[in-house]
């Protein structure tokens, strides 16, 4: 039975409730575990983790070198590991080289550093287009890349998970780790945008 074959007035919330009651009464799920799984991804695991990795790499050259050489170990050093992060590879964006990550076959995503994927990453338009016209995709999101910038697209087809280390924006030299991390968004770490610098106030 599929949703398409079900009566149209059985919506997804009711279908979820039905599945939950069936699994609970068979002992295949329990409420505590369900709530633990939800809570982990609502509060503990998300792009704030990746932003800490980026801020550390921007301010500690030794850490950055380790991160690029053995992403899994360097990320675990900050306490981030788990499902969908078994083998992490970090890709450094520079003024001359821009990486962008996708999973065309499903929605593989580096959960320990970025959490669960956002709508735009799971959407058919992104999955279909970015492997064929990445410059057009990035431009549509306001990321203009000149002809002199090399573009590398990575399609996550195995259990290796990719994480983009974006460029540090100008004007951030005196910022603390926390201030730097606050500048970094999940889309920066997938490679669809660059990090916006701090707001400049007129003299």
């Amino acid at each position: 039975m599929t949703q398409a074959e079900m009566e149209p007035d059985i919506d997804l919330a009711l279908r979820t409730e039905a599945l939950e009651s069936l699994l609970l009464e068979r002992g295949l799920a329990d409420t505590k575990t369900i709530e633990t799984f939800i809570g982990i991804y609502e509060t503990q695991v998300g792009p704030m983790n990746g932003a800490k990795v980026v801020a550390r790499a921007w301010t500690d050259a030794d850490y950055k070198a380790k991160l690029l050489q053995d992403g899994t170990a360097a990320i675990a050093e900050l306490g981030f590991k788990g499902p969908q992060g078994e083998h992490m590879v970090v890709l450094e964006n520079t003024p001359a080289l821009h990486h962008v990550v996708v999973c065309t076959l499903c929605s593989c995503y580096p959960w320990p550093v970025l959490g669960l994927p956002p709508s735009w990453y799971k959407d058919s338009a992104y999955r279909s287009r970015v492997v064929k016209e990445p410059r057009a995709v990035l431009a549509e999101w306001g990321t203009a890349l000149g002809d002199d910038v090399e573009v590398k697209v990575v399609d996550s087809s195995s259990e290796v998970r990719y994480f983009v280390l974006p460029e540090r924006p100008a004007g951030t030299e005196s910022m603390s780790l926390e201030e730097l991390a606050a500048l970094v968004t999940r889309d920066n770490m997938v490679g669809v945008t660059r990090v916006a610098g701090p707001a400049v106030t007129a003299p």
């Binding site: 919330a13 979820t16 409730e17 939950e20 295949l28 799920a29 369900i34 709530e35 799984f37």
Partner: peptide, 13 residues
């Protein structure tokens, strides 16, 4: 809310 439950239930299934 149902999306979080569907996520957890699918992992458990």
């Amino acid at each position: 809310p149902w999306e979080g439950r569907a996520f957890a239930l699918t992992l458990l299934a």
